[in-house]
Design a protein around this nucleic acid. Structure first.
Lengths: 157, 157
DNA sequence: GCCTACTTGTTCCACTTGGAACAATATGCT
DNA sequence: AGCATATTGTTCCAAGTGGAACAAGTAGGC
């Protein structure tokens, strides 16, 4: 035991002193939800992040191209391309050439893909509740409203 | 990079319709800050995420072991181990064996490492401001307070 | 028509990432 | 003391990631 040795290092103190406190807090809370949730999903369903984002997008839009998904999610096109091939071979999505544009393909989700998405979304939701249940419902609403305002502003950058 | 991910051109209603809206909003806003900031830092300084987190930790604690940094940041020990070696060879940190425990080594930041950290932190801060400047100062304080409460709760999970 | 510029989806490759096993050391129990 | 167990830091390896180049296709100008 030399210093204030951190046998149990609580980052809270750390999150106060850091030079970019708001970003550090955002990152900490987000990771507390996202990282364990994606780890669970990968272990349980063998689905990696880009693959799930593909299913997520297709479950909210009837038809998308790979490029659409890339732009929606911010992931590079090659990651989406790989995800499309795996989800195709697993039968979770379908692909049809666009008759009006020979370059692009129209992607749609299958019943199997939608069922998988529903199960994964429930994992995400549960993890979200575990982390955010420390806030009262009114606080949750306030947080969501502030985040939405920031998201709006960030999207316009 | 490894972070949570939704990026810019998101139709507004996507974040409303998703099954885990709070997590999606958190992920979107966090990524809007973190991802471009780390990309800049990597391009400009050649420093990757684990390496910067090491510098960040050591700039706020006088002495840490690699294990401490791993627990503080949540990154696996081998990532920290690699970062330690590169920051050592770049002269940004120093390492000395712990006289009381032959397993661990005491890490400290050098003047060069601290200068690098200051420059990187300024990049992060600027990116944070770009995204969060859409909120009024009072809203920023409210957001930080709510996130801190959630972080506290998440740390106790 | 032709030619240039752009877009979509893909493959290639260098790099990052993190789980698992490992040696060295420390701790606890009897 | 001895022996089992835990911890630190490391290396190895399989997997994921994203930039760059690429072929096929489209769009616009002339």
């Amino acid at each position: 035991m030399s210093e204030p040795s951190l046998s149990k290092p609580l980052p809270d103190d750390f999150l106060q002193r850091v030079e970019f406190r708001d970003a550090a807090l955002l990152s900490f809370v987000t990771s507390a939800i996202i990282v364990p949730a994606y780890d669970e999903v990968k272990r349980e369903f063998g689905i990696i992040r880009a693959e799930y984002m593909l299913l997520l997008c297709l479950s909210h839009y009837p038809v998308l191209t790979a490029q659409d998904v890339s732009r929606l999610t911010g992931r590079p096109r090659n990651s989406i391309s790989r995800a499309v091939h795996r989800m195709l071979s697993d039968g979770h999505i379908e692909r049809a050439p666009d008759p009006d544009d020979g370059r692009q393909a129209r992607l749609t989700i299958t019943a199997s893909g939608r069922a998988l998405h529903d199960k994964i979304a429930e994992h995400m939701r549960q993890r979200q509740e575990a982390v955010l249940s420390g806030l009262h419902p009114v606080e949750r609403d306030t947080l969501a409203a502030l985040l939405e305002k920031a998201a709006q502003h960030a999207a316009d950058l």
